[in-house]
Amino acid sequence: MEVKHISKVIHHQTILADIEFEVIPGNIVGIVGRNGAGKTTLLRSMAGILKPTKGDITIDGQSIFLKPSLKAQTIFVPDSSEALKNYSTKELIYLYKSIYPHFDQQYLEALMNRFSLEPINKIGNYSKGMKALFTLIVAFATKAKYILLDEPTDGLDVIIKKQILQILIEEVADKDVAVIISSHRLDELEFMANDVILIKDGRVDSHYELDSMKELYKKIQLVFETELPEEIAENTYVLEQTGRVSTVLIPRDSTAVEELISSYHPLLYEELSMSLEDYFIAKLGGDDNV
């Protein structure tokens, strides 16, 4: 599946601008950005719900907008199951079965058993966590190749969250599917996604493969006689600054930056362990991060 230079303008406002990337089955792609960055709009475009103002979404080289039958290979799971809340589990299975020809009812029932989800008369009556689990299981049961999940774990308790992520990982391990997850929480995606796309103001701010990430940057704690010199602040990502102690992110192999720092004679120069979240915060803007 390819996202080809898509842009979306709504009410003369640019929500997405020239977004491009490729999704290859077998991968978990994380779409990360702050609230309002355009993650949902991007996912809805990839699901064919919104037509991009410019650009195209293709599967096997063909546009999903010109050939909607290709969308049988994708399934979109919105952050609320509002749309189908009045369906019974049985009705919902019937609905999906008649739309997705490869719907795997056995798989669905096996997973419902595993998580002790009882069939119900109204899906809206499931608890929040059960709803999330159920919609996810249904999505995987369609045998779609590209699973688009909008904030799948938002507002769920740890146990359900873990169960959901586990199903997801098992699916990717077992089958040739790609899972595309949007989230504003990087820590959840950190070890799951092998490809993270950072979106800021509707643009791809950076796109990296997870393993290479940690080799690119390091996190350093610095203490100076006085405050953090401005020249250093300009040339690094400042994560945190409390009094004379500051934590910054610098490229791992940049001798120029390291020389710059040592030229100011820091009292303390110590490398700290780093998480992806540090990178996220640095890129998307400081402590006021939502």
Binding site: L165, V172, A173, L210
Partner: peptide, 19 residues
Amino acid sequence: PSVRELSSKMVINPNTVSK
């Protein structure tokens, strides 16, 4: 454990385990 089992238990990407 298989790649599937281990990645699921640890909640990490299967590609990482298989690598």
